[in-house]
Structure formats: C-alpha cells, structure tokens
C-alpha cells in the first residue's frame, strides 16, 4: 500500500518502522551516543532509532536538536528515514544537514512499529509492502437524534468485540453506496433507508490492512431492527456519546465528518 506525502529531505530508504504517537525533541528525548529514546513519557521509551524508519507526528523543542540529529549520524545511530505528519524547522533542518531522507504529510496513525516501510522522498510516497489496502463502507443510521452502534461478534474476521457502524468490505469494482445498502439490509433488516450524506473516505489501520472507509449517513423511520450473526448487541446513542465506546479505529472521525460540516467547530 502506498501513502502519498511531501518531500522534505532528499533520498530513499527501506527498513523497519519505529512509530511514536507523541512529538519528539531531538535535544533531550534522544540520546545521540546510544540512539535510544530517553524520554520516559514516550511510548517508544528505550527503543533504538538506529537503522529504523522513525515516524512521529511532529518535532518540538530547541533548535540545538538539528545538531543532535547530525550527532546521531556521526555516531552511526541515525534513523534510516524520518516520517512526520507535519514537519517543523528543527527536524527538517536536522534531516537535511544529516542527509536523512524525510517526508511529511503522512498520517502517522496508519503506521505501526515493526511495519516494513519504503520511504521514497523523490517519488513523494511511503510504501508499506506487507500492508494491503482494502475498501469498506460504514453506515450510520440516524433516527430522531440518535445513531445506531453495533457490537461486533466473536465470529467476524476483524475487530471482534468492538462497536461499529453498519459495515462491510467492498469487492473489486463495487460501488460503495450499493454495498452500504446491502449491508444495512443484511445487518439490520431495514429495507428502505434514506441516504442523507456521503462522507469523505477516511483511512483506518487494521493488522495487515489499511481500510479506505467510505462513510454514509442514512435516516431511518424506526429503531426496531433485527441483527444477524455479525453482531451481538446494538444501541441507539446520542452522537456525542461515541467517545465512551470501545470502537473500531477512526469510527468517531467518520461520524464527525457526517454530522458536522468540514471546518466548523465540532464538539469533542
């Protein structure tokens, strides 16, 4: 699977990913002698950046961080490549002077520590050769201010026990809206939902798959539904209650994109 981004520092590298969900300051968070992450609060504390593709949301902290990156290269402790959600000056400068390929504009939430990654700054993409891309639909049924969530059974292939919308995978050239209507019929036995809104597709990470999820909002006339083997429980919730549910990844993002127009304030 290929993710497209933006070149910050030239080059191409292949290696295994080390992914931090928190920002990194090279001055203080990284020990240039050992190449180990020294920040106790980091989710990759104690891991070595040496020879890995280091991915994190963005850099923070002192401009001396650029020299610390140069130092890691000098000590042969440098990462193979750097991937950011959004680059800032300290890490961008450090990558350029150290000759470390770097890209930004990549959703780091889709990457996992241990993923094999190809960072091609010249081609402006990051490739995950062992991760495939598949398309899926997730539909939210809406009735008098409430939205339907379903709890996935232990029989289904992925994300067992998590709360989700009405979802299903797409075959090769299937239209997402056809699949959405079909899944609603199978999973809730509702045959006449009214399509209200089509959301922007979002990407969500599964184990060896990145799902391109197409979200839909349907209005229905009833809260009486019949679930099939794929689910064990359902609830009609207020949209803002979604945060309290152990849910499939990026479900809230998908719902938010349907309930509130892009760019306007959203309740958290």
């Amino acid at each position: 699977m290929k993710l497209s981004g933006r070149r910050i520092s030239r080059g191409r590298a292949e290696g295994v990913g080390l992914v931090s969900t928190s920002p990194i300051s090279f001055l203080g968070d990284v020990d240039p002698e050992s190449g180990l992450i020294a920040d106790h609060k980091s989710d990759i504390f104690g891991e070595s950046i040496q020879g890995r593709v280091l991915a994190f949301p963005f850099g923070r902290g002192s401009t001396v961080g650029s020299y610390v990156m140069y130092s890691t290269r000098r000590n042969k402790r440098a990462p193979l490549a750097i991937v950011n959600e959004r680059a800032e000056a300290v890490v961008a400068t450090g990558a350029v002077i150290s000759g470390i390929p770097m890209m930004d504009g990549i959703d780091v939430g889709l990457l996992r520590t241990g993923d094999k990654m190809v960072v091609d700054a010249e081609g402006s993409f990051v490739e995950l050769p062992d991760v495939r891309r598949r398309r899926a639909v997730t539909s939210f049924l809406f009735n008098r201010g409430r939205v339907l969530l379903l709890k996935r059974s232990e029989e289904v292939g992925t994300q067992r026990g998590k709360w989700a919308g009405v979802s299903g995978y797409l075959e090769d050239d299937e239209e997402p809206v056809d699949r959405a209507r079909q899944e609603i019929l199978e999973e809730t036995a509702i045959g006449n939902p009214q399509l209200k809104k089509v959301g922007e597709p979002t990407l969500a990470r599964g184990n060896d798959t990145i799902w391109e999820v197409h979200p839909f909002l349907y209005k229905v006339d009833t809260r009486e539904i019949t679930i099939d083997w794929e689910h064990v429980e359902y609830r009609w919730i207020r949209p803002e209650e979604i945060s309290g549910y152990d849910r499939v990844s990026r479900l809230k993002r998908a719902l938010d994109s349907l309930m509130w127009p892009e760019g306007s304030p959203r309740s958290s």
Binding site: I8, V64, Y67, A89, T93, A95, V96, D104
Partner: peptide, 25 residues
Amino acid sequence: EILCALGDVFGADRLVPISSAHVSG
C-alpha cells in the same frame, strides 16, 4: 537544500535577498 526544505515547510513562495545574517551554534 536547507532553505528549500524550510521554504516548503513554511509555505514560502520564493527566496529573497538578505542584507545581513547572524548565526548561532
């Protein structure tokens, strides 16, 4: 390369001449 990377990061449209520089480090 440094100036181009920073120009891209910060959305600069072009490079402009300076009348002086002061370096740290």
